[in-house]
Structure formats: structure tokens, C-alpha cells
Design a protein around this nucleic acid. Sequence first.
DNA 1: TACCGTGCCTAACGATCGTTAGTTAGGCAG
DNA 2: CTGCCTAACTAACGATCGTTAGGCACGGTA
Lengths: 196, 196
Amino acid sequence: MVETTRRQAIEDVASDLFRERGYAATSIRDIARALSVQGASLYAHVASKEDVLWGIVDRAATRFEAAADRAEAEAEARVPGDPVEALAAMVRAHVHVLTSDVGGAGVFVHEWRALGPERRSAILARRDVYERRFRAHIEDGIAIGVFAMTDSGLAASALLSALNGTATWYDPKGRLPAPRIADHLVDLSLRMLGAS
Amino acid sequence: MVETTRRQAIEDVASDLFRERGYAATSIRDIARALSVQGASLYAHVASKEDVLWGIVDRAATRFEAAADRAEAEAEARVPGDPVEALAAMVRAHVHVLTSDVGGAGVFVHEWRALGPERRSAILARRDVYERRFRAHIEDGIAIGVFAMTDSGLAASALLSALNGTATWYDPKGRLPAPRIADHLVDLSLRMLGAS
DNA sequence: TACCGTGCCTAACGATCGTTAGTTAGGCAG
DNA sequence: CTGCCTAACTAACGATCGTTAGGCACGGTA
């Protein structure tokens, strides 16, 4: 990941620190130290500490949304009107975003609570829309009988929780490369919904 | 929940605050304010802030372990040697602990990272043992053909992540009472593993 | 040469943090 | 009445927090 701007470099190291220790437990001076710089120097590039968090969270949210857009479009182009295909593509896209940017995605998943009230509810609304897209495919699948009867809301929550757990333990140098993890999680997800 | 000791009362309100804002973002004075008391007064009952967190996490961990013990024993007594029955019982027990003490269990799930190195690794070891118990039943089920072939480690992680997600959104006054949530999650879990 | 933007510095601010010390008030047992 | 236990208080400590102000060094452009 080659940083083009100084701001990007700051958000990159902050992502890792926020993910490891949490936002509140990470000080501006911690971030600066990781960049071999004085704490106050960061304020030439960012407006506030929360601003850094927002940059990370907003970028991650946008990635998830864009990946879901592409996944839905491609699934629809390949096999139109198939909820199984659509959901599989969205799961794969979600896992890909998670594993290709563990830092940012991990912060998005766990640290949005540290945002101020307005940004916090803004991101919650986007999360809600995002989760609803999964739920919609689940309901479509139930309606045409390719998924088993379930509470679609709870199923969507459980599904996304299972996927997001990846952000906690995933290690790029670990056993199982990212594509295999995605394969397995797609299988588990479809089975969980009773795909036939 | 009628508190017998003052220490219990402290841990109870701390559970809720830690769950809502996180450990690092909650001050000793925040906890004290919730008890209508001065911050320094708490030190008559607890040794340190981390001590409060440890009390909560340790108690929650013990509850999960004890519930799993009972679940395994009862499943074995009812239908001996059946991995499906055993896993279903463990899922149900896990969800019950989660929903019967959202505060404590929520802190256990999310805030163990804030512990110091020694307690942190101690709790990680216990989590590991706990997760392995789920994995063992999954592997048993695969071996005798009642569960589908899967990476048992990844399946156990995904399963527990799905269950633990409950701690984030569960509301005792919400739609769906706790027992129904448990029913649904048992169904989803077994289907996810391809139970036949 | 003069200039401007970028990146970093030191110094310091007020606030808040976890924690310690020493004290006071009430209730119950001897 | 005396004495101890419990639970709270006030006051303050040193450290660290996020943040601001003002200045210095460098590189490219006019």
C-alpha cells in the first residue's frame, strides 16, 4: 500500500493502532510515534482525532458499499434474479473488503461507537441500509423457496456477524489464504440459510 | 438483579457503561456518578479500574464455561454420543448466557483487549479452550457424517462470531424474546454445519 | 533572488485521567 | 460508652490527554 498523501499515511497507521488497542486507548502521540513524528505535527494534516477515525470509517463504509454494488450487478448480469447467486456474490465481496484492508475494515466494524453523535448515527444509517440489502436477498430467496424459512432480520444479523468476526482473527500471513476463507464463508453462509 | 455486595453493584453499572462506551472511554468517575458517589470512593471496594474489568470478564467467562458444562452433560445424558444434540445444547447455553447478562457478556466479548498482558493472555487461553469444545463437536459430527465437510476451525470461529453478535444488538425489551432468539440461532447454527 | 507551500519542530494550555491520603458519619457488637 | 466496620467524603498528586500557537528548514516555481 503506497501512500500518496501524508493524510493517507496517518490513517493507515491509525487503522492498525485503533484496531489493536481501540480508538479511546490510542493517543494522538501514539499515532505520531508510529510515524516517527511529534504528536502536535499531525494537526497540520488532520483537524482532530475524531476526524482521523471518521476518515477511516467513511472510507471503509464506502468500500463495502461499492463492493456490494459491483457484486449485485455482476450476479444479476450472470444469473438474473437468483437470490442464491446474489447473496453468494455479496458475501464474497464483503469478505474480500475485510481481508484486503483488515485495519480499516476492522475499525469500521468495531470502533464506530467512538464517533460523535451525528457521525455515529450517519454511519449507523449506512450500516442499516447495507444490512438491509443482505436481508432483501434472503427474503427473496425465502419467497421463491430456495432458502429455508427464517427470521430474515436475525439471519442477516447473524450472517454479517459471522463474516465480520473475520476482522478479529484474520492474519494475512496465517493459515488459509484470503480466497479460501471467502470460499468457506460463502459455503457456510448459504448452508446457514438452507440454500437448496 | 439484587446486589448483595457493594462490589457487585459497581461491577453491574460498570458492565453497562463498558458495554456502551468501551472500557477506555469510561472513567472511574463515570462509574461513580452512576452510583451517585465520588470517584475516589470506589477505591474502598476495588483495587483498580482494570480490577473492575477483570471481575466482570472473569465472571462472564466462568458463566460461559459452567453453562457449557451443563449443556454437554445434559446432551450426553439425553442422547449419548450425538454431536448434533451436543452442539445444539451448547449453542442454546451460549445464547442464554448472552441474553441473561447482556452487560457482562458483552464486555467479555468485546473488552478483553483492554486487560493487561497477563490477564489478557489468561482469558485468551480460556476462550481458546471454550472454542475448541465447539470445534470438537463439529469434528465429531463430520467424522460420523452428520455434519458436512468443512474447515472445523473456521466454522467454529464463524459460529461463535454469529452468536456473539447478539450481544451487540440484543435488547430485553425488543422484538423477539430471548428463547425465540435462541431457537433461531440453534437452527441457523445446525444448518450452517450442514446437519442432516 | 524572492516566494510560497509543505512538513515538522518546541512549548505550552486547560482538562481529565487513575490513584492516594487522610478524615468523617453512622450502625452494630462488646 | 467504647470500639470497630462500612461507606462515603474532600483534596490533591503526577501523568497524560487533545489541541493551539508560533517558528524553522527545505524544495520547487516565478
